[in-house]
């Protein structure tokens, strides 16, 4: 007797659709709890942690922002292997505004966010026509080129970078700032993706000819998506700069390009929650494995492989499926 797995939506999922959710507290809780977990988790537990783990949370949040930004680009079918471009531009922009003009972080960070978004969009504008691996190659090369440019021309402090930048008043301010931005980005991007605008964006990645024949200028929409993603990435860069009180060539490092991709793949591409979960697993894991010394990378890689092979769809889609559907084995006749 052959059997196959059948998946059926849970009753509560169906009952909680549309306006009907308002009929009972149980349905409302069903809808609200998943969204409340990251909010409560991030905002309540961070102050309880030690200084060291708060640092880890901050660097995790930076990677999470880059991963969510990567996911946004992926929605429009733009495969980016150069998230460090966004990070580096934001970092140097905030650093120079602070170092040369003496602006405080409260100004440099918003300026670097918007400015970085614009600069990165302009840099990528000529290659927006490219798809898949071709676009990926260009994004991979751009940050490497820029970091060599800084080294060769010795602008912006050259290899030493810009040092002694203004730090945040205290660690708790920094933790709350980045966590609030992370949550706003997460829910904002999810809302964008769920809207009609989001349908157009995902349509470009599914079937760009169909979107073109619908009278929509896909290059313009891709540019908007790159701006959204690049702004978030630049914010991460500007924030990291003031955190470390330093802006330099490491901002263009490969870490900032690879880690977001790994986080998004482990967590689940296209969900925004996934990259967040991925980053909050991978980055603290990498910290926890520090005690292993040289073997750290081996175990880290092993964990990555286990995740990707074990849950290829990603952690978030897996959890989401369990939350929304029941599975059972039925006989195939």
């Amino acid at each position: 007797m052959k059997k196959r797995k059948e998946r059926i939506d849970r009753g509560i999922k169906v009952r909680a659709q549309d306006i009907f959710a308002l009929t009972s507290y149980r349905e409302m809780l069903y809808l609200l709890v998943p969204g409340a977990i990251p909010v409560v988790g991030l905002l309540c537990f961070a102050p309880m942690l030690s200084n060291y783990w708060r640092e880890v949370i901050i660097s995790t949040a930076i990677y999470a922002l880059l991963a969510i930004s990567w996911d946004m680009l992926m929605c429009a079918g733009l495969l980016s292997l150069g998230q460090s471009l966004f990070f580096g531009i934001g970092s140097y922009l905030a650093g120079s505004l602070n170092h040369y003009l003496g602006l405080p972080p409260i100004l440099t960070i918003p300026l670097a966010t918007i400015g970085g978004g614009l600069i990165c969009t302009l840099l990528l504008l000529p290659v927006l026509r490219l798809r898949g691996i071709y676009f990926a190659m260009v994004t991979l090369v751009l940050p490497l080129m820029l970091s060599r440019l800084v080294e060769a021309t010795r602008i912006l402090g050259g290899t030493e970078g810009l040092t002694g930048l203004t730090p945040f008043p205290n660690q708790l301010t920094a933790v709350f700032l980045i966590q609030i931005v992370l949550l706003v980005t997460l829910f904002g991007f999810r809302r964008i993706k769920g809207s009609d605008y989001g349908l157009v964006i995902t349509g470009i990645s599914d079937n760009d000819r169909s979107v073109m024949s619908a009278g929509i200028n896909i290059q313009w929409y891709k540019a908007q998506v790159v701006f959204l993603g690049a702004s978030v990435g630049s914010f991460a860069g500007a924030f990291g700069t003031h955190m470390d009180m330093f802006a330099g060539m490491p901002g263009f490092a490969l870490d900032y390009s690879i880690m977001p991709v790994a986080a998004a793949v482990v967590g689940g591409v296209g969900t925004f929650f996934g990259p967040l979960i991925g980053a909050f697993i991978l980055v603290p894991l990498s910290e926890a494995l520090r005690a292993l010394g040289a073997l750290r990378i081996v175990f880290y890689g092993l964990f990555l492989v286990i995740f990707v092979v074990g849950i290829p769809e990603g952690i978030f889609p897996y959890i989401q499926r369990k939350y929304q559907q029941v599975e059972r084995w039925v006989d195939v006749t």
Binding site: D196, Y197, L199, V200, G203, S210, V211, A214, G215, I216
Partner: peptide, 8 residues
Amino acid sequence: IVPLYSPR
């Protein structure tokens, strides 16, 4: 939705 989003 996509064609209905069109500027036209």
